[in-house]
Nucleic acid binder design. Structure first.
Lengths: 201, 201
DNA sequence: GGTCAAAACGGACTGCGGTCCGCTTCTATT
DNA sequence: AATAGAAGCGGACCGCAGTCCGTTTTGACC
């Protein structure tokens, strides 16, 4: 529209050129449309560029890769989930007993995967650094902390790794979509598992 | 060389034309060479075809896909492992207590992943049917059976799924290669986990 | 408004996995 | 040995993710 001020309203991080900002919005809007129409797996970077009316180079300049784009699309949902388990009300947030929080964490994560899992799968960077994206590290640390608080002294770091593996989107989606496992059954199994891990302490 | 008999020596399954058999050998040999030289991730189907002196179509006719090729390369090691946990000596094979067998299974699998994991990762078919390849199904059933024998009555099928997730090559390789976790530490954590799962029964 | 370097753009290009289909080679049969 | 058709072959071809680099846009400074 019109330039309001020469001084950036939100300086620092927000130093983004007007055309870049416009294109980012165009791309995100187009990406959401395409996913709505074709699913996350059906989105190709070329089609996205075309739909948004920009060049392919622009798409990759913005998001780095297909996985990066998916992460960006996920970031809102992810931030909300993180906020809930770090600062929200019990039993997921602080205030409840560690075991209760562990149980709630798994239950909420299962629900989250059922809602955003396809996107999360598409956001998985290939190979080795998939477990080192900020969100994964945060979940891992959270689980480790809860395990410590629950009195698990035997290598809580690796135990948190194991629990993370259990909640991986790919497995959960496979159980639900292919094997018709009901989400409540998944949650019950998680409760069972985490109770035994903690009680054995 | 020379044709020994018009009647196939091993009939039935072995009905493979001579040129097809020759090309399969050429391809497997070339594939092993290339993996030796460039690693499993460095092998491309085009290069493989070239090295073996056949067309690309032939490679895909034989193995279906890159993942299929990797599975074929793995099949010997996989069959050996399966034989050991199904028919071999205790504690991995039958004869030991279920918990002992579970512990041994994890330990052996960790060692197996450290030896063949890169190949196993490359053999992962994308997306949904990755957990339904015969080998994965067999491992899952084995774990489920051991859990039942150990007295785990609460949804042994899903519990076996969770334990399988813990032993996934990708996680194990990541822990060892990126986070420098010693294999014995992985084994100890597995022992701890599976003991708690079983004892809670 | 005019200037200019830095930032962003866009589409041709590469390399890959995978497919297709006309051609060649094999083998059972006579 | 001749034959026929099934099995196998091979490389041109496709769609995709990701890169490169000459061109265009932007906005801070004059």
């Amino acid at each position: 529209m019109c330039r309001v001020s020469l001084i950036p309203i939100r300086p620092g991080v927000e130093s983004e050129r007007r055309d870049a900002a416009r294109n980012r919005e165009l791309l995100l809007r187009a990406a959401r449309e395409l996913i709505e129409e074709c699913g996350a797996d059906g989105l190709t970077m070329g089609t996205l560029a075309q739909r948004a009316g920009v060049g392919k180079g622009t798409v990759f300049r913005r998001f780095g890769s297909r996985a990066g784009l998916m992460m960006t699309l996920l970031s809102d949902a992810e931030a909300a989930f993180q906020g809930r388990f770090m600062f929200g009300p019990p039993p997921l947030g602080p205030g409840a007993a560690p075991l209760e929080r562990l149980i709630a964490f798994g239950e909420e994560r299962i629900a989250w995967v059922l809602e955003f899992g396809e996107l999360a799968r598409a956001a998985d960077v290939s190979a080795y650094n998939r477990f080192d994206v900020p969100a994964a590290v945060l979940w891992h640390r959270h689980l480790e902390m809860l395990l410590r608080e629950a009195g698990v002294t035997a290598d809580p770091w690796l135990m948190a790794t194991s629990l993370s593996a259990v909640l991986e989107p790919e497995r959960i989606l496979h159980a639900v979509r292919v094997h018709q496992v009901a989400p409540e059954r998944l949650a019950a199994s998680w409760r069972e598992l985490v109770s035994r891990v903690v009680r054995g302490a």
